[in-house]
Simulated assay, not measured.
Amino acid sequence: MKKFSQLALPYIIWAILMLVLPMGLIAVYSVMDQGNSIVPFAFTLEHYKKFFTDPDFLLILWRSLLIALKTTVICLFLGYPIAYFIARSREKTQNLLILCITIPMWINMLVRTYAWIGLLSEGGLIQRILSLVGLGNTELLYTEGAVLLGMVYNFLPFMILQIQTSLSKMDHSLLEASADLGASPAMAFLKVTLPLSLPGVINGITLVFLPAVSSFFIPKLLGGGQYFLIGNMIENQFITVGEWNFGSAISMIMAIIMMLLMMAVRKAETRNQGGKED
């Protein structure tokens, strides 16, 4: 046990320096305000009050949660059939398909998002294809649809890989047993495959929703600054406006929302496995 503690010490120090300390500073900044000549800083909750009493800020938060939800639902409905097809393929085919999914992830996400600007811009490849069916005048770039497309494109692989991992670990003899008991393929999927794949579904939802709700460069590039999300708002407060205290308060609000969502996901996963939380 002592040797294990010594081995874990560098990781504990790294976590404190890279995670705990920055979050602690943000938490302190969020409840600080400029004081007087005697006390330079004063405790305040005005930054939190400012956020929750301004309808524009609440609208941005709602918009961020909504587009993250849309992204997650689309990734789930697209990712599950793809993951199912990969898991049912031969081992060599599985490795090839997984490689095809992961290769784009080797490229920086910012570069991949920039590529969509050229595809969606006026005179771009997608608009040329749409013009063949009489939809050439459709505005594609700097719209909510463009932002949603960029979100789905960047986060879909996380959903596919998580679900595929769960499906690959499934005991296929259970499907044979269900068939012997007279279950149709559709019934076997609903009663056996789907429940066993839920841990991967839940992990995929977590890995898609959390980064989607706080993303800032995808709406900035594909939304052209016209589609403002909570991540853009935090960036704006820190870099443009210089309101570090208010930006820290917004960051803490988002951190609390994400922690609550992760707790809800953990409870759902525990309930699905039929166990009890530690």
Rank of each mutant, 00 (worst) to 15 (best):
I239L: 14
F216R: 09
I239Q: 13
L210K: 03
L207D: 01
W244E: 14
G247C: 12
S248E: 13
V213E: 04
V201N: 02
L196F: 14
F228T: 14
N232M: 13
P195Y: 12
I230P: 01
S214N: 10
S251H: 00
I234S: 04
N236K: 08
L207G: 06
W244Q: 03
T206V: 14
G224N: 13
W244G: 03
F246R: 08
F246Y: 10
S248Y: 03
L196N: 15
W244L: 13
M254T: 03
N236T: 01
P211I: 12
G224A: 13
F209C: 10
Y227W: 09
I202K: 00
P195M: 11
V241W: 02
I239H: 03
L196S: 10
F228Q: 10
Q237C: 05
G223Q: 05
L194G: 08
G231W: 07
M233F: 12
T206E: 06
L198Y: 10
T240K: 14
G225R: 14
G242T: 08
T193I: 09
F238I: 09
E235Q: 15
P195I: 14
I218W: 05
M233E: 13
I230M: 09
I202T: 10
P195Q: 11
I234K: 02
E235G: 03
L229N: 05
I218R: 10
